[in-house]
């Protein structure tokens, strides 16, 4: 092994760690966090955070292509927020515009598990499960189209499919109850799919 390699490698590793830490550095740059900062610390804190974040992003600019090439980042989140206000997806279908909706799928409902394995698969759930307070994800509309197509292909009797999210609340001490209020309705008609 050449003599120059170990110090060069150690230097490269130090650079990798420094870039990773800079990328993963927790910055309160989200709108919720900024609102909190402005309210409880003052507008100066928001300006300071913004300036620091600009410096961080400038320093990271030369390495951005690596993150893009491997789709890598160093900010890790798992249930970062676990609020009590959550959602429960309903997938319904009906045979005519005036017919009543028939429930096909709803998580944690043993009697309505149509396409249950596919819908519960983690990647598909990633498309339909809303962000905590940020609303539906970018793939939600495409998900509704895909699931409607899948239902229309299997069930010739249905003319319409509707995906929507019931707002639910986790009870204090565990368990949950539905509110009967729905959000993000995404209807799909068979005719429009052709």
């Amino acid at each position: 092994m050449t003599r120059w390699w170990p110090p060069l490698r150690a230097g490269l590793i130090a650079l990798v760690i420094a870039v990773g830490l800079l990328d993963g550095c927790p910055m309160p740059s989200g709108s919720e966090e900024q609102k909190y900062l402005r309210e409880y610390v003052g507008p100066g804190a928001v300006r300071a955070v913004d300036a620091t974040d600009r410096v961080r992003k400038t320093l990271l600019r030369p390495f951005r292509f690596i993150g893009s090439l491997g789709n890598l980042r160093q900010r890790w989140k798992l249930f970062a927020g676990a609020p009590r206000k959550r959602y429960r997806m309903w997938i319904e279908a009906r045979t005519a515009p005036t017919a009543s909706w028939e429930l096909l799928y709803r998580p944690q409902d043993d009697e309505h598990e149509y396409l249950g394995d596919e819908l519960a698969y983690r990647r598909v759930r990633g498309a339909w499960n809303p962000r905590g307070s940020g609303g539906p994800r970018g793939a939600y509309a495409s998900f509704a189209t895909w699931v409607a197509k899948a239902i229309f292909a299997r069930e010739a009797r249905f003319r319409e499919v509707r995906v929507q999210m019931e707002r639910i609340e986790i009870d204090e001490g565990g368990g949950w109850h539905g509110t009967g209020v729905f959000a993000y309705p995404m209807p799909r008609k068979r005719e429009a799919m052709r």
Binding site: F79, A82, R86, R88, R125, I170, G173, G174, G175, W176
Partner: peptide, 10 residues
């Protein structure tokens, strides 16, 4: 948090 997550039907 964990009770909330464990209760989440999703």
């Amino acid at each position: 948090a964990l009770a909330n997550v464990l209760s989440d039907p999703h």
